[in-house]
Design a protein around this nucleic acid. Structure first.
Lengths: 141, 141
DNA sequence: ATCTTCTTGAAAAAATTTTTCAATAATCGA
DNA sequence: TCGATTATTGAAAAATTTTTTCAAGAAGAT
């Protein structure tokens, strides 16, 4: 099922700003801030307003089509999100963001946490930071 | 080793704003924004400026004494950080933040990621969201 | 006690995000 | 395909958050 269909089924309209944001993120090699999305988006749709980028991101994030990336210094980056749970791999050199599928891998850890703390874990945010394969090869750490 | 010593050894001075921020966070039951830290801090030190809170947080974070908490909507919350690597447990009901020690628990997952993607994982950010023990008992989901 | 230099607080500037509102465009039903 | 309905847009303004600047003040070393 395509993203447009998913948006529709969630009750949202398919509009030009939303299409443009998706397209910009699809082509992006690394997480983009609203400003960056706006700048690139205008090349596809001249009259695109920054406000609409903010609004589109909010809607797309709610629909699970887009994901916010959390970094030390900045938390304003967005990437495309595949359906299902994924972890994020962030390359500290080229900035590329990769998705890594699966949530089961954490079940052992989560069970341990629940046992020791009495916490009931419902969700999680996992981001791994390091060097992607190409950057590993081409560079001195 | 106390935090003051750790700060000193890292080359920073022990100042009133930094002391106040630490004290406020020590007493806090949940992550606080710079604004909130400022408001509470002024009760301990009248002339405390908001700018100094921002600056103190930056320094304390660099020194590993304070940690920023990343949430869906807001990423401006800070909590005290214990030495060593910890994961964060966030209660979605009362907002409390707990630390959970250990990084080894992820080694299996990390090895798997490295094997499958060629990524070299150097660091990670893991936050678990759910219900803490008291909230589990006292509340309907 | 004094000197050096890091740090502070206030004001201002910059940057980011949200609100408002009339105009526009997406979807639905005929 | 054409209207009618209503969500959505873009621009301006407002609100909020964060950073910069700089003279005055305080921390730490001698």
């Amino acid at each position: 099922m395509g993203w447009e269909e998913r948006l529709s089924e969630a009750g949202w309209r398919i509009t030009t700003p939303r299409r443009v944001v998706m397209q910009v993120l699809r082509r992006a090699a690394h997480p983009l801030s609203p400003q960056e999305i706006h700048a690139r988006g205008r090349r596809l749709h001249r009259s695109l307003g920054l406000v609409s980028v903010y609004r589109a991101l909010a809607v797309l994030e709610q629909a699970g089509l887009v994901r916010r990336v959390h970094q030390e210094g900045r938390c304003d980056g967005y990437v495309l999100a595949s359906p299902g749970h994924h972890h994020i791999l962030l390359c500290r050199r080229c900035g590329r963001a990769l998705e890594f599928p699966g949530a089961e891998d954490l079940s052992g850890l989560i069970a341990q946490v629940e046992r020791r703390t009495g916490f009931r874990v419902e969700d999680h945010l996992l981001q791994l930071v390091g060097l992607c394969a190409p950057c590993r090869r081409s560079a001195a750490g």
